[in-house]
Each structure stands twice: as C-alpha cells, then as structure tokens.
C-alpha cells in the first residue's frame, strides 16, 4: 500500500526550479532513501511534504488524502513527522519537556500528563538517552541532540517519519548506532523516508533509493540498481 505518493510536485523559487515535476511514492513499512548532490532539492521536497513551504503545483497524497497546502501542524496530526537537517530542538528546555510537548500536541493529542511522562521515558530509552530527562537540551552532544529530535518526532506517533540527514556530522560508531535506530523504528511499524549523504549507511538500510539532481528525479531503484546506474555514478557518486 502506498502511504505517500507525490505527483508532479513543483516548487519554484523565482525562476529556479527547486523541485521540478517530481513523481515518487513510499510504500507502507518501507525505508526509502533520498540522495543527490547539494542543491538537488532534497530538503525542499521534505519541506513540501511536511508543509513548511507551499508548492507551486502538484499533489502529495498521504494515506489517500492530498496534504499539499496543509500547515505543518495539520500534517503532523495526520501522522507524518520529521527531523531537521540542522537540529531544531527547544534548546533551553529540558530533554523531557521537548518530548512531553510532542506527546501533548502530536497525532494522539489530549494525552494525560502521567501517560506522556511514561511515554517520554520509554522513548528516551528507545533512542538511547535514558537518564537525561532533566538535562537542558542544548547541552547534549550533537549525536544525542539528533537522537532527541528523533525521539521528539516519534512522540507525535507518526506513521511516516522523514529523517533529514540523521547521520551528518556523526562519527563511525554513532553512524552505526543511528543505522540501528532507523531499523528499530521501522520494526515498530513506522515507515521511513530519509535524506542521507553517508552512502554506506543509506545503501545498507534502504529498501529503495530515489536520486535527485537539479530538482529532477534521475533514478530510482534498489541500492544495487542505484550503485550501478550510469547517471547516478556520473552525477553523484563521481565514479
């Protein structure tokens, strides 16, 4: 079943097409990678899906409903959450407040405080941040801030999670842990669409990969197909 499907998605910044006529789909339960050189329009596509920016034209169907043009909070309430390329935490608030807020306002909404607190410690344990509840968010290491952002997104109870460069800036050990985390999230039933530059990681976890270049989809397929694709090799992998 297709949980997310985009048709003819276009976004122009003035005369520049950030995404031009992109068609894509994500199946329920999949992990799909989105790759491409800098400026290819990957984050723009995420921003369009999550409602951060308004599209020029096209449709994006989420669970059979066109969500293009909805506000981010409306899209979140329908079960679609995201993280950001540059971490956007509530820096001066505590780790647990970051998550509680997402529990209170996310998809399920109206959660009781004690339930939210239980959910918060469960999520912190899940992403490997147990015991940091009272820590001020901006005092965490960058790897842990990224984990917290994932936990916060998960607290809204998404069915589809968009991860924007989860692995960027992490050391090899942390990349391995993050990969593990992505697989665990999928195991719990959340579909994942992720932008990534760390090739080894994304080739390892993705069921399918979409490659963008200058706002256009240049290739799509299994990791094996992508690594052997002539266009992708030339443009992106540089082999």
């Amino acid at each position: 079943m297709r949980i997310l499907e985009g048709k003819g998605v276009q976004k122009y910044f003035g005369g520049l097409a950030a995404t031009a006529d992109v068609d894509f789909h994500i199946n329920q339960g999949e992990i799909v990678g989105l790759i491409g050189p800098n400026g290819a329009g990957k984050t723009t596509l995420f921003n369009l899906i999550s409602g951060s920016i308004a599209p020029t034209s096209g449709t994006i169907m989420f669970k059979g409903e066109n969500i293009l043009g909805l506000k981010p909070h409306q899209i979140c309430k329908r079960g679609l959450a995201r993280t950001f390329q540059l971490v956007k935490l509530f820096g001066s608030m505590t780790v647990s407040q970051n998550i509680l807020l997402a529990c209170f306002f996310g998809k399920s909404g109206g959660v009781h405080k004690s339930d939210a607190q239980r959910e918060s410690s469960r999520l912190l344990e899940f992403v490997g941040l147990s015991g940091t509840d009272g820590v001020i968010a901006k005092e965490l290491t960058i790897a842990n801030q990224k984990r917290l952002e994932v936990a916060r997104a998960l607290a809204t109870k998404p069915e589809l999670l968009l991860l924007d460069e989860l692995m960027a800036g992490l050391n090899p050990t942390e990349v391995a842990q993050a990969t593990e985390l992505v697989l665990e999230i999928r195991k719990k039933g959340t579909t994942i669409f992720m932008i990534e530059h760390v090739m080894k990681a994304i080739m390892g976890v993705s069921d399918r990969i979409i490659a963008l270049h200058y706002g256009k989809k240049i290739s799509e397929g299994t990791p094996e197909e992508i690594t052997t694709d002539k266009t992708v090799k030339e443009i992106y992998l540089g082999i």
Partner: peptide, 24 residues
Amino acid sequence: SKYGLALLAIGESEEATDHIGVNV
C-alpha cells in the same frame, strides 16, 4: 499548562513547534 510549554517552545523554534502539532 501544556499551552504555556508550547509558548516557550515558540520562543525557541517556531518551525519545530509547528511540526510537532501545535497550531502556532
């Protein structure tokens, strides 16, 4: 209240607050 917490979050990052379901 949770709205007070959400107001604090707006002061930190309006975009992130919007994305966790708060009608900012």
